[in-house]
Design a protein around this nucleic acid. Structure first.
Lengths: 210, 210
DNA sequence: CTTTGTGTCGACCATTTGGTCGAACCATTT
DNA sequence: AAATGGTTCGACCAAATGGTCGACACAAAG
């Protein structure tokens, strides 16, 4: 005999995912106010009513999408920075795994940053749980420890983290503009990204070496 | 006798500036679709009709604001990168003058990047005139020249430029998020920015030294 | 076969929003 | 004082948009 559940909610999941994907595309491109519920429904191949059936209000839907985006980014970041690796190893992993991740989701950082600018205090309160903050404290402590044992040169740990993230995120974030400024094709830009991935670790090794 | 002009257009200028400032704030925060004409008019202390009197349509107004933003950023950038200074001097100036500039207009980069993502091709076509592209080619040539004469170590010039910009722009761009991640106050973050300004040149000197 | 409850939809509603228009204002000119 | 012409506004309009509601489909349960 089969499950005693009244109905299989398989189609459920499927449509919900379809709706969320469409919503993500729309919100990322046009923002909360710019995205149109009808467009989202159309792109998902469903009626507008479905959106309100699964996510009561537009804001609810938006919050779901934004929270997902924040979680995605920080999960990946935590996976690397919260490991047992040495600082330089983490930098190496960051330049490869994290940039690869961002390259696969080039829209995520801008989306999150854009929302964080609307109301920084609210963003921090609603979307930056203590877990994400702890992410940095442990890494900072590790850097200080390696500095104490003389493994790396003394630097400002906060600054180091900011610079690491700058190098990873900005080249992806600003690809459309930089591609224009540098006057290169998308392929050439991708090649440069690969090169950044390869050379970034050595870059920081020089920085942290005595 | 006074000017023979029929009327002084001084009030003109003034209201136009007020409208544009209000429009800039609104567009930066909410984007083209999210900004409300009524809000812009209210913030400028004028009627909505004024907006249509000075800028016929919302899109026209938006394009004006965006073009201004792009021009502002690239003017500052050109002022530094198009000078007669050596590469390392330019890096030094970038870390001071350009970051100061961005710190005074922390919203500009995100605004431009956001629009560039909506339609990269259109953005490049409409808002990146040849003049802005030439900005990089000359700097690239200069880097190659200094490499040839052995003044600096061989590196990929494109990559160098991207890294310089990353270090300048990203810390400002992502302040709301990073302040949360690092769990520091605005003052502490500002202090860190100052430190980045001071240390960035040495950072690149190490990178470019033999 | 009827009931039931979850999904799904089309039609509709109330509000918001960009945009228009004619009137009023006011300094300058005649 | 009357005319002129650029400037400003309030009232209004048509379209778009978020959201609601009743109906319907349809498989599982009784």
């Amino acid at each position: 005999m089969q499950r005693t559940k009244k109905k299989m909610p398989e189609i459920n999941r499927d449509t919900e995912v379809k709706l969320m994907n469409a919503a993500q595309n729309a919100f990322i491109k046009y923002g909360l106010e710019g995205a149109r519920m009808q467009d989202i429904a159309d792109e998902a191949g469903m009626s507008k009513s479905m959106l309100h059936y699964y996510f009561s209000k537009k804001e609810k839907l938006f919050e779901t999408i934004l929270r997902q985006a924040v979680t995605d980014i920080f999960s990946k970041l935590r996976q690397i920075l919260d490991s047992d690796d040495a600082v330089l190893t983490k930098i190496h992993r960051l330049s490869h795994e994290f940039i690869d991740f961002l390259h696969g989701h080039p829209y995520l950082p801008l989306f999150v940053l854009h929302e964080s600018h609307k109301d920084p205090a609210a963003f921090q309160r609603e979307f930056m749980p203590a877990r994400e903050v702890a992410l940095s404290t442990r890494f900072i402590a590790q850097v200080e420890e390696e500095m104490r044992t003389g493994k790396i040169r003394p630097v400002n740990p906060h600054m180091l983290l900011v610079q690491m993230l700058s190098m990873c995120v900005f080249p992806i974030l600003s690809q459309p503009v930089l591609q224009g400024v540098l006057n290169v094709t998308e392929d050439e830009y991708k090649k440069m990204l690969k090169q950044i991935q390869r050379e970034m670790p050595a870059f920081f090794e020089r920085m942290l070496a005595w």
